[in-house]
Design a protein around this nucleic acid. Structure first.
Lengths: 207, 207
DNA sequence: TGTTGATTTGACCATCTGGTCAAGATAAGC
DNA sequence: GCTTATCTTGACCAGATGGTCAAATCAACA
């Protein structure tokens, strides 16, 4: 996201590789144990580096965590940004749902990291929530309201419609153990979820 | 749940009161910071007791946490247990949704404690999930499937129907900060959610 | 009131944890 | 190969944290 130019910081190949390795390891550990539950030793072990070496690449434990979180917000917002005002309303909303569910399936650790942060009151993300997130949601909700006012989808509160999409799709990543425990073996929760949410939102939005 | 008889352990009034005070304080702290993020000193301060005194009433930090979790499961299952096979299907399901949302509104700390535990892989609850929870859900899903096979509600996967109820209702407790950040001031998320989920499930279940 | 058992706590301990530092190993340019 | 800048680490530190313990305080009851 930053340091794309060769100037500001040299960013040798070793630096690039090791910072990446560390972030990957930190994601694994933070998403499983939360910020305070994770230790630098765990992350170092996961990354195959020594603890002082971690701190050569990142100023502190908090700095690693922040870097992960800031990288997250964009991944989070992109699918919603992609909702096209000129598309067919139901198709656009369903595409958003499907895309969000794919993200839960493919990036469950990121989803849990995010959930951990919000659960604990979002101490490091509140500004982003009230800023970028809110304004994007406001914009898309205006769009959705336009669609329902024009009778192209059923009348529904657009904000809570979006909340429901977040809740449903993230549930399969964040509560994975519970879902699997209840379904028992021999199930593909995400495949089933895909069919379920499609049905749900089609019935909800049908005029 | 245990020690209802006066015999096994005396349980003086002081003991009863202090154990309760400690559990209340621990709920506050654990739900806000997670198990590892919470400290005995924090809990002691919140309870207005000294740390050694906590450990006079509970064997360890873990013991406090376990007691909270075990108390939780029942509160969690009760609304689902209350689903009446002889009632009107849509009304029964909507009542369940409403009851679950009330719990999110009235016991958000319990909801977050639970979410924290599941998020981190449910290390201390997996047996309960695969046991009591699964069998109750299996039972109620059979019931719901009966309803939809009889044409009394629309065809829908009962397991994912229940997951959707959990996801939606708990979202308002667990992601409270996010919901409020997006809605902005002047909203009552739970009141709005109540209307939203009612609409959603009515449209989903209508034959 | 004296005695006994329950309750409370200050002082303490071992371990863990985030972080530092100086010295050594390695890679890169000349 | 030599020099310089980058990278790596063993040893260490200060503070936090879960937990212990003996001694002190309190409550109840004979």
């Amino acid at each position: 996201m930053k340091d794309d130019q060769p100037n500001p910081r040299p960013q040798t190949r070793i630096q690039q590789r090791n910072r990446q390795t560390i972030l990957e390891a930190a994601l694994e550990v933070f998403s499983a144990y939360g910020f305070r539950g994770a230790t630098l030793d765990q992350i170092a072990a996961e990354a195959g580096l020594s603890k002082p070496n971690l701190l050569y690449y990142f100023a502190s434990k908090e700095a690693i965590h922040l870097e992960l979180l800031s990288g997250l917000m964009d991944t989070w917002l992109d699918p919603l940004r992609a909702m096209n005002p000129d598309g067919e309303p139901t198709a656009e909303i369903l595409a958003y749902v499907r895309r969000k569910l794919e993200i839960s399936r493919d990036f469950p650790r990121e989803s849990r990291l995010f959930a951990n942060e919000i659960l604990q009151g979002a101490p490091r993300m509140q500004p982003a929530l009230e800023g970028d997130l809110k304004s994007l949601v406001d914009e898309k909700c205006a769009l959705i309201r336009g669609w329902s006012d024009a009778g192209r989808i059923a009348q529904i509160d657009p904000y809570h419609l979006i909340f429901s999409i977040w809740a449903l799709t993230q549930h399969y990543a964040d509560f994975d153990v519970q879902v699997r425990a209840v379904l028992g073996p021999g199930h593909d929760p995400f495949a089933e979820a895909d069919r379920f949410v499609e049905t749900l939102y089609q019935r909800l939005l049908k005029t």
